[in-house]
Simulated scan of single mutants.
Amino acid sequence: MARTRPRPEGPPVKLPDTGRRVLVSGASRGLGRAVARAFAANGDLVAVHHGTRAEEARATLASLDGTGHVLVGGDLADPAGAAAVVDAAVEGLAGGIDVLVNNAAVNLPHPLAETPYEEWAELWRQHVAVNLLATANLSHLVARGMIDRGTGGRLVNIGSRGAFRGEPDHPAYGATKAAVHALGQSLAVSLAPYGIGVASVAPGFFATERVAPRLAGPEGEAIRAQSPFGRVADADEIAAAVLWLASPAAEWASGTILDLNGASYLRS
């Protein structure tokens, strides 16, 4: 039978406003890069994770304000790879992680009517492994460190508007992001006694290098028209919300799923 670890005595140490140690998964470009920059500009130390895009991750690292940031590579779809990433981040960030941002994700099209079964099954496997299981595994590894140190901390998950409105061409993406939201709420309840806040953001469409051709092409106008503001978000706007959810002031927002879609999708 597994041994139950005792809870630390007394209240956990409160997180500082700056100088925290932050691991951002999938930070080689796009939103991950914007999030890493937001924390670095706030005076925090950042571990920039990448899977295969090492050169782009180095560019992210070079763009960060301040010093002491580190680069960590690894395959998060492999549980051992996720553990190695956390170990490297802990070592590089002076012995601990105070904030985890679960940003790494797969989002590949696979509409059911047009996707052969073998391809369908493999794409579902990839989405579950990266979007859901890697998020769960990183959360366990980082939160266990927070519990053992008695320091408290923050976990922030990057979900999606698609978890609520559906993703007909990317059903595994929508389903796994819905699961990420549910995971975050479960962890928010279980980890609160240790001073660990857990929250998620659910962005709508936002501009990155990856989607720039779509925004510049024929469908760009329709994408911007999804919001009554007539535009899409900037990645920095999403990153600013992540930074706040990871702050000491946001403890009471633990368990929330923050919609960031410019009123393009309203849920009850």
Rank of each mutant, 00 (worst) to 15 (best):
R3L: 11
P8A: 09
G10E: 01
P12L: 13
V13S: 13
L15P: 09
G26P: 13
R33T: 07
R33Q: 11
A41W: 13
D44A: 14
L45R: 13
V48M: 10
H50D: 09
G51H: 04
T52G: 05
A54D: 15
A62P: 07
A62V: 10
G66S: 03
T67N: 14
G68S: 09
H69V: 06
P79V: 10
A89R: 00
A94I: 12
G95M: 05
D98R: 12
D98A: 12
D98N: 06
L100G: 11
V101T: 02
N102A: 07
N103S: 10
A104D: 05
V106W: 10
H110L: 11
P111N: 12
A113W: 11
W120N: 11
L123K: 14
L123W: 13
H127D: 14
H127V: 06
V130C: 00
V130E: 02
N137P: 01
S139F: 04
I147E: 02
D148A: 09
R161C: 02
G166F: 02
E167Y: 05
P168G: 09
D169C: 02
G174P: 06
T176M: 12
K177H: 14
A178C: 07
H181K: 03
V189C: 01
L191N: 14
L191K: 04
I196H: 08
A199D: 01
P203C: 04
T208S: 11
T208F: 00
E209L: 04
E209W: 00
R210Y: 10
P213L: 05
L215C: 08
P218N: 02
S227Q: 15
G230Y: 01
A233E: 14
D234T: 10
I238S: 14
A240C: 02
L243Y: 11
L245A: 13
A250I: 10
L260Q: 10
G262V: 01
L266P: 15
R267N: 08
